[in-house]
Design a protein around this nucleic acid. Structure first.
Length: 420
RNA sequence: CGGGGAUUGGCGCAGUUGGCUAGCGCGCGCGGUUUGGGACCGCGAGGUCGAAGGUUCGAGUCCUUUAUCCCCGACCA
């Protein structure tokens, strides 16, 4: 992508109506646009990051047998009344609207009911199970208070997966597979070291604990207690001697930390399947309940977490796995030979299918360097008069600041290895 | 939903005890000098001060209502 063609621009000033670092940086660099509180649009660069995160999530869900679908945002009232989740007293953050004929609709905030309703058309026999089905979709929640940029929005992108199992053992197996897939997702996003499985409240679903995936961060609104040996934690909200005993955790080994929830998995048991009257026939023709699990990852929230977690005083610092491009070419000046050299490099990298941004603007060096830093592209290559005299390119690593001089071949090799 | 703060060109801000045609920086357009960390000179466009109502000879400045945004708290199935 040529920067001269990109309609977004960076700003020298921080938006005055944001205090959350993720929102400040993402807006300043032109990745997102604030429509209203808790509602953000994604511009080309931001969308690319979002798509990269989605793709990682998608690959890992597919790897455990997940089947992708896309459910609807508009939801019929009747379906949700069957599980007693329509009433505002039960779930108070619905966005609701009406058809022209007056029928009430809800705007999707989660999809247990519609998923089960969909699957009920196809699931009859033990032969049809188990199933993992997921989607990556916009969710709408009428939060009383949106805050912290992408971390808590009223409209946000979420991956929600649901598992349907025949037996408790099968459910446990699916559940742990999903948890393992979650670990791989955070690992690939660069958050593996700071994300910890955390026991939390199971909500209204079940007396069992749910598992949250908490990324350690000072910006986190959750307080968790981490057992660093066991690599697990317990959320403050369920912290009690009884819970600790049940989980086999030793109070003295726990360290208090702030963290932000980037995933949550629940044991739903048979609550939704039973309520919606969906069962399967076993080998003996006996009708049996279906055991469900649900698994969420806040995709857009992750974008905010990653932005904020890796940023430094000069701007964003994307991990290579989600960066909108691997490398940015900064062309110095407009001399014919320099332009030619830069275009050549741009073409060569594109040919190698390496994500590349070419700063072909007729701007001053300082502006180009500043933008390259702010945009957070992992590698920066300079093409200027000096480049013409040597046969190497000056390459700077955004995260470390390390500078090296590489031939075209080794540059390509470096960028391709990061890509895999 | 309770408490606090904010709202003035695209962005960031200043506007004295109410007083003339509402300023500044950045950005933008034109011309020129520049080009390895946001350089400079000249000219220029662009706002009716969140909205509505009121007080006054006169309101960005005072009063009332209201909308929106941010923060703290409550909430987060």
């Amino acid at each position: 992508m040529k920067l001269s063609l990109l309609f977004t621009k960076t700003s020298k000033t921080v938006p005055s109506d944001e205090t959350a670092r993720n929102a400040q940086l993402l807006i300043q660099a032109g990745y997102i646009h604030k429509e209203m509180a808790g509602v953000y649009a994604y511009t080309p660069l931001g969308l690319q990051v979002l798509e990269n995160i989605k793709q990682i999530v998608r690959e890992e869900m597919n790897a455990i047998g997940g089947q992708e679908v896309m459910m609807t945002a508009l939801q019929p009232r009747e379906l949700w009344e069957k599980t007693d989740r329509w009433d505002d007293k039960k779930v108070d953050n619905w966005f609701k609207t009406k058809l022209a004929n007056g029928s009430e609709l809800g705007v999707g905030l989660t999809h247990e009911e519609p998923i089960v309703d969909l699957l009920s058309n196809y699931v009859n026999s033990y032969k049809d199970l188990p199933i993992f089905v997921y989607q990556i979709q916009t969710k709408f929640r009428n939060e009383l208070r949106a805050k912290s940029g992408l971390l808590r929005g009223r409209e946000f992108i979420m991956k929600d997966m649901y598992s349907l199992a025949r037996t408790q053992e099968e459910h446990e197996d699916l559940y742990e597979k999903a948890v393992a897939a979650y670990y791989r997702v955070y690992e690939r996003l660069g958050l593996g070291d700071v994300t910890v499985r955390t026991y939390a409240d199971g909500g209204i679903f079940t007396p069992r604990f749910s598992d949250e995936f908490q990324t350690l961060s000072t910006i986190g609104e959750d307080t968790i207690f981490v057992d660093e040996e066991k690599k697990v934690a317990i959320n403050q909200e369920i912290m009690s001697d009884e819970s600790l005993q049940k989980l086999g955790l030793n109070k003295d080994k726990l360290v208090e930390k702030h963290a932000i929830e980037v995933g949550n998995t629940f044991h739903l048991e048979t609550k939704y399947t039973d309520a919606l009257d969906v069962y399967y026939d076993d080998e003996k023709g006996q009708r049996q309940s279906i055991i469900m699990g649900c698994y969420g990852i806040g995709v857009s929230r992750l974008m905010g977490v990653i932005a904020e977690h890796f940023a430094d005083e000069n701007g964003l610092v994307w991990p290579t796995s989600v960066a909108p491009a691997q490398v940015i070419i900064c062309r110095m000046g407009t001399e014919v030979e320099v332009v030619k050299k830069a275009e050549e490099l741009y073409g060569a990298l594109q040919e190698q299918k390496i994500g590349v941004i070419y700063d072909d603007r007729d701007a001053r060096p300082g502006e180009k360097f500043g933008d390259a830093d702010l945009l957070g592209i992992p590698y920066r290559v300079i093409v200027g008069k000096k480049t013409l005299e040597t046969s190497v390119y000056e390459v700077k690593v955004r995260s470390s600041g390390e500078i090296s001089e590489l031939s075209l071949d080794s540059l390509i090799q470096l960028l391709r290895s990061e890509n895999s």
